[in-house]
Design a protein around this nucleic acid. Structure first.
Lengths: 223, 223
DNA sequence: TATATTTTTCAAAAAATCTTCATATTTCCA
DNA sequence: TGGAAATATGAAGATTTTTTGAAAAATATA
């Protein structure tokens, strides 16, 4: 069906992805690191590239950046939970989708299928955007504006805001926020989340009420 | 709502998970070890499988691997903190999510809900909702509205309402309400429940009659 | 290396909620 | 019907949770 390049330093992951992709009738080529991927791409053309972020030497982002200089093959990133959340969302034009580890083969295949389906059609260069009154969040460009004026947010503020907006209308427990935005291994103080909520509210000033406190539970971003 | 298989050698954990899953209206089947889980899965189909990693004989990973040969039911792993981090994030990508012990029931339920939402109805991002006339309870957002207007509920009020609505049409003894909503270890005054029923009734004002007093027994939320 | 920025910790203050308790009301039945 | 038992209610104090500001620690930047 499609020709896929899977780039990961762990052989087991490559094997696993390959197994399921082949099962679905795809043609799979493996690369164990970024440099190798770049070399291979000079010779062959793929329909989709699955790229792990965490790799020794050339990481996924750098590899992606390099690849983008010559090709526009859709790229799906693999990332650990809590890892580089905003980097993934903010990465300029580079990434088509990402999958958070751990993931099931089914999920990855679904994403691959979705992208393949999408790329058959006319290129959709529309940025992914959330808007509410004069608050505008452009996930693709990584820009937040209020009333047309650009708002400066720290990385963590972006992480948190993006995550909450992506999951707006859902009651998010403190635990879920901490593990998903900070990563599963966050051991920190209980007040860290509150503090960042505070900073974020301050930053999005007139819209601070969009972040609703759910006492005893966590927070919710109003849909 | 969903059919869940919980696999753990510790009965306490199984009970713990079961209690809350049933609480949320799920249908739960237990297995005390990997082999049993594999056997059960040959006969029944589940919507989600919760699998402990640390089990005697066949551990969670091996069980997962075996299960994956025949089924692609979403799997959530339970792991002790720091346990098998690499394995979870790397090799075993046949899993959909993981929860670190000790975990709160809320946390696990949220992840179960998230996976169900993602796998069952990909296009359907509908929240789980209860409606009766103009009373609307959005369990996903944790929002209660009457006639479109948002009602403010305290945590206990919401928990109580949640529990009663999930178990509507059923006579709920005071004892059951106290142990299930407050927890096993509630030693408090007998009037605590009454007081919260009072507050809840006040909050859902025109619908207060939906909470029926069963003298000598407890309360019932009208179906 | 110094400087600026960001993240985290911490403790006090504020806010919201929970529980208790005394009293009122209702229900049931001898 | 009278009174006991169960439930409802209001108010106050106790407790819990969140907010906040400031400072320390960690990171990034010049």
């Amino acid at each position: 069906m499609a020709k896929i390049l899977i780039v990961d330093d762990e052989e087991k992951i490559r094997e696993f992805v390959k197994k399921y992709a082949v099962f679905e009738g795809h043609n799979v080529v493996e690369a164990s690191n970024g440099m190798e991927a770049i070399d291979i791409c000079k010779k062959e053309k793929f329909d989709i590239i699955v790229l792990d972020i965490m790799m020794p030497e050339l990481d996924g982002f750098s590899t992606c950046k390099e690849l983008r200089k010559s090709i526009d093959t859709p790229i799906i990133m693999l990332s650990a939970r809590g890892e580089e959340y905003d980097k993934i969302h903010g990465f300029e034009i580079g990434i088509d989708d990402y999958v958070v580890k751990p993931f099931s083969p089914k999920e990855l295949m679904m994403r691959i299928d979705a992208i393949l389906k999408r790329t058959q059609k006319v290129a959709n260069t529309q940025n992914e955007v959330f808007e509410k009154d004069t608050l505008k969040i452009d996930f693709t460009a990584r820009i937040v504006t209020i009333d047309g004026k650009k708002i400066d947010l720290s990385p963590k503020e972006y992480d948190l805001l993006f995550y909450m907006v992506k999951n707006r209308g859902i009651a998010l427990t403190r635990e879920k926020l901490l593990t998903d935005v900070w990563g599963y291994d966050f051991f920190g103080d209980d007040r860290t989340l509150d503090t960042h909520i505070k900073l974020l509210r301050k930053s999005i000033a007139p819209y601070n009420n969009l972040i609703v406190t759910l006492r005893g539970v966590g927070y919710r971003f109003e849909a």
